[in-house]
């Protein structure tokens, strides 16, 4: 029974591409669309989500023996809310401008389906080492997805990357729509389609 469960290292690698939270599981879309107008807010959000996910997994894994079945979702949510409060106050104290720019999306990490589903599927049933590996893998996958979308949106929309000018005005006309809300939907839709296309090609090739 134990040998069929994925090991810690397998879980870590799993979360990056094969079960990427955004491109495969389609969880936690709300912050993805909102903060990816630039690389800097996207990476700040990725770091905050990673911190909350790893802390919540550790805590839930430590108290997994005490969870009552019908109250467990509430316990997950309250634990996550506590860690998000800590992360939000930390950001407001040390990175005030970024905190103002991210606005209400840092507290919205509480209802990020990714964290609750990881607590439910993995942390409430597995030991500490496996829970941490799973959380780190998912965080890396989330960061990768956020980076890809933010890069596309910022390069096409503002010609900068992390605020540094990359594409000069004369080479590439700015697609202003990309840094506005519709651009978020369009960029994510096209990138999702690209990811699906790669998967379908790989499946088709492996069948040949």
């Amino acid at each position: 029974m134990a040998s069929s469960e994925p090991t810690a290292l397998e879980r870590l690698v799993n979360g990056i591409l094969p079960e990427n939270p955004i491109y495969r599981q389609l969880l936690g879309m709300c912050p993805v669309l909102a903060v990816t107008a630039g690389m800097r807010p996207a990476m700040t959000m990725a770091a905050a989500t990673a911190a909350v996910l790893i802390s919540a997994n550790i805590m839930i894994s430590l108290i997994r023996g005490l969870l009552k079945p019908h109250l467990r979702i509430l316990v997950f949510t309250l634990t996550i809310a506590t860690f998000v409060t800590i992360a939000d106050r930390f950001l407001a104290a040390f990175m005030y401008q970024m905190s103002k720019q991210l606005g209400p999306y840092v507290p919205l990490i509480i209802v990020n389906c990714l964290i609750i589903s990881r607590c439910e599927i993995c942390a409430s049933k597995q030991g500490l080492r496996i829970a941490i590996a799973d959380a780190v893998g998912m965080s890396l996958g989330f960061t990768l997805a956020l980076a890809s979308i933010a890069t596309v949106r910022e390069l096409l929309g503002a010609g900068t990357w992390f605020g540094l000018p990359v594409l000069a005005e004369s080479w590439w006309p700015r697609w202003g729509i990309m840094v506005l809300p519709p651009g978020a939907f369009l960029a994510l839709g096209l990138l999702l389609a690209t990811a699906q296309w790669f998967t379908q090609r790989r499946t088709a090739n492996s069948h040949k």
Partner: peptide, 12 residues
């Protein structure tokens, strides 16, 4: 188109 089916076309 096949890659767009589901969430892809919905997002666009």
């Amino acid at each position: 188109p096949k890659p767009f089916k589901g969430p892809g076309i919905t997002l666009i």
